[in-house]
Design a binder for these strands. Structure first.
Lengths: 214, 214
DNA sequence: ACGCTGTATCGTACATGTACGGAAAAAGAT
DNA sequence: ATCTTTTTCCGTACATGTACGATACAGCGT
């Protein structure tokens, strides 16, 4: 069956978009993160600057596309990581996540530290989580720990708490590199072990049901 | 003794600077956070736009000055808060910090989520912490808990870990308001209780000495 | 072949942060 | 008092993101 005209057009559009992403990627590699400007990017692919806006809503959107590529790689690396014990498998998620954030601060920043305007297109929570391969693998491995009796409670709540701890750790390290955290790896390990050890001792209720008693 | 010429000049300079900060504050109140531009600010105080740069290194510097005012208020509010139990006193720090972050996301963002270029002028760790009234009160109250036998270990390490947990919690809530954390307050309380309960069960070593074993 | 409609592309224009260098004023030296 | 140096102030200019609206073009029905 030949592609419909509609579909062919969409495909062409997607190709041009990814051509732009590629060009943006090269630009960043060659001139650094702040060297990526709309004008340079447009010139690189032979378009007028404003034409870029046919494929991306704004500059953030481009940075986001770049970062998502990087995070895709991270998610694959985590999934391919061998893991005997379920808790160890969970630790792998945390430490790889941390290593990625420390090694790619720009990407980490654009995805996790910049203001989000749009709740991605009326998607539901579940869709949003499925869409984020990182949260997906995190929840899966938490579920494995729960199934193995190593953790107890609502998997999504546990995953979210781990996310909060991990994100706090990494974003502080990124934002305040001169603060005396000691060795970065050691601090990451400490926080990771701390959170997992603490979670192991309690039954975690789902998120919405938490009673406010403070 | 009359003021030296040197001192008088400095004072005048400081006055003009704080006049600029005041004007900036009003501008933000009237037109919102993104309504604060160098040109508007300069016009407001009757200067040319470039003159602002005699008092602030760049726009970030202005935003920072604004935010520091707000954080000063927060620190005072925390210090004035009555606290019977030392653990409760510590919880007050966490919850007030969270309430501030959720209520003043712009200020929180500029202080805790934007790239820092300068390790503040070759200051030592201790000076830096003394300079930050928030970290100061946090460490003090952790010390009180340690003294009361409620927590065990190195106060600065404990404080830093609490900071990481608190910051992770708040920055996620700010950055992903559409993620289903459930009730924001409840999530903050949960993370706060979680961290404190976990810390109560272990002896926390100083930061630099943590062995890397992951 | 011919108009109609939607879309892709882009030229122009504007607001913004800020680099650069000059002018003016103040401080200090002689 | 005059000259020198430093500090303050600002006019101009540039790069950047992007709003707005025009233009050209592709697909389609007639």
């Amino acid at each position: 069956m030949p592609l419909s005209v509609q579909t062919r057009r969409e495909k062409q559009k997607a190709e041009l978009r990814s051509e732009l992403v590629d060009a943006a990627h090269k630009l960043v590699q060659e001139e650094g993160y702040e060297g990526l400007t709309i004008r340079k990017l447009a010139k690189r692919v032979g378009y007028a600057p404003m034409s870029v806006y046919s494929y991306f809503a704004d500059k953030q959107d481009i940075l986001f596309a770049l970062a998502e590529d990087a995070f895709q790689t991270l998610a694959r690396r985590i999934e391919d990581h061998p893991a005997s014990d379920p808790i160890e498998a969970l630790k792998v998620v945390m430490t790889e996540y941390a290593a990625f954030g420390l090694g790619n601060p720009n990407e980490y920043r654009t995805v996790f530290m910049t203001e989000k305007v749009k709740p991605p297109e009326g998607k539901t929570f579940a869709e949003m989580q499925e869409g984020n391969p990182l949260m997906k693998v995190l929840i899966e491995r938490v579920e494995a720990c729960v199934a193995a009796g190593k953790l107890k409670g609502d998997p999504r709540a546990i995953a979210t708490m781990l996310w909060a701890v991990g994100h706090g750790t990494i974003s502080l390290l990124i934002t305040f590199p001169f603060y005396p955290f000691g060795d970065q790896q050691a601090f990451v390990t400490r926080m990771c072990d701390f959170a997992l050890a603490a979670l192991a001792t309690q039954d975690v209720p789902p998120l919405s049901e938490t009673p406010a008693n403070c």
